[in-house]
Design a protein around this nucleic acid. Sequence first.
DNA 1: TAAAAATATTTGTATATACAAATAAAAACA
DNA 2: TGTTTTTATTTGTATATACAAATATTTTTA
Lengths: 140, 140
Amino acid sequence: MKTSESRYCKCMYFSANALARKIEKLAVDSWKMIDLSPSHAYLLMAVISEPGIQPGGLADELQLTPSTITRLIEKLEEKKLVVRTTDGKLTNVYPTPKAKELQPKMKECSARFYENYAGILGREESYKLVESINKLADKL
Amino acid sequence: MKTSESRYCKCMYFSANALARKIEKLAVDSWKMIDLSPSHAYLLMAVISEPGIQPGGLADELQLTPSTITRLIEKLEEKKLVVRTTDGKLTNVYPTPKAKELQPKMKECSARFYENYAGILGREESYKLVESINKLADKL
DNA sequence: TAAAAATATTTGTATATACAAATAAAAACA
DNA sequence: TGTTTTTATTTGTATATACAAATATTTTTA
């Protein structure tokens, strides 16, 4: 059944979740090549572009809770893609050389993901939709 | 930080998930009064409006996987809100009288949830956004 | 009609995420 | 300066969801 054919398609709860699940699938596919989930990949990209960034900053930037950030970092640490140093109550997260090597492939995955949905929706329309979604998210 | 201020706000993965998480929170709040999560509540409403509906039908209608539906039903069964009967390979799910008594309150929660986000976004705009979200979800 | 294929559901397991509590350090204050 | 409050992070635990495999039944087909 299409999302728009469901009895519940008028409800934002239903629609927002259905979209998120479908986008998640597409993203997982697009990122499979580097064996990272999209969340781990975005976190890693954030660490690469801002080495030393703290968990709190990552939580803010990625709109996830600090505890979720800790869990994501743990996994990237296991994979030797980031290291943590602590300085008093602060923690700094740095990318490893292995992570930096991965960067071009990550850009590729990111671009492929974009092509996937923009190809379906059209660039203009995708852009507008992301804008309205952000606008709502900001207000909530 | 606002969603639209994040470095990643141009990405549908980021935005769709950020929106879903915020909407989830709002929904959990709106449904707290009857002590059901939004998913359980939507499933229960579907069962009430179509008594005897099967897990497969629920999966289709709610855009969740069959295994998720089984898990949701299990919890509603524990709470004595639905019963399952099996007939060969088919399973039928029925609401209990206790569930039917809950119906007016569920409608209230549902309405309150709608007021919450439509109050923030405006009715017209909410409607349009849900439409575009569904349109994208359909294509994916 | 017996075997094979398809279908519906459940179960085992894994994941991402969050909340609340715990910990630890820094800042404010009296 | 010693105490209180605030801040940053992690840990324990719970939840929703999915995938893959298992199970059970029905339908198709040879």
